[in-house]
């Protein structure tokens, strides 16, 4: 039977400000261990007042480099998230998927913008 794991951002970070990448790393480590352990994880955003992309990139975006989308979708759910915070999380996840899917495309977009075919590298 899969184990239910509840993780509170407030409890891990210690205050309502989820802004620092280092704090995001602490959350990531708990999430990664719980996913590896086969847990059903609920990540609570209760009492969180401020989030940054830096924090969410470290805490959640980083998961997409180590686990499949399917695995994350099955194992993880979030609760008590304000709509605007959910919008930020949504963008972080989309960016993370693209980042890990094809790093080269990020660079290619800029080369194209410069009108450069990139053959000189």
């Amino acid at each position: 039977m899969e184990k239910q794991v509840n993780i509170s951002l407030f409890e891990v970070v210690g205050n309502p400000l989820c802004v620092a990448s280092d704090d995001g790393q602490k959350v990531y480590e708990r999430l990664a261990e719980a996913i590896r352990g086969g847990g059903n994880i609920t990540l609570s955003f209760k009492n969180i007042s401020t989030l940054t992309s830096a924090f969410l990139n470290a805490a959640i975006g980083q998961l997409y480099g180590n686990f499949s989308e399917e695995k994350i979708r099955t194992a993880l759910k979030v609760e008590d998230v304000a709509q605007d915070d959910l919008a930020l999380l949504n963008r972080v996840i989309k960016t993370a998927k693209e980042y890990f899917h094809d790093r080269g495309r990020f660079d290619q977009a800029y080369r194209e913008e410069l009108g450069d075919d990139g053959d000189d590298e």
Binding site: S21, G24, Q25, S53, A54, N57, A58, G61, Q62, Y64, G65, N66, R91, V92, T95, A96, E98, Y99, F100, R103, F106, A109, Y110
Partner: peptide
């Protein structure tokens, strides 16, 4: 989407 990060943690937002 542009970021100079190339490690385990994504960036660019």
């Amino acid at each position: 989407r542009n970021t100079t990060k190339n490690g385990a943690v994504p960036g660019g937002l």
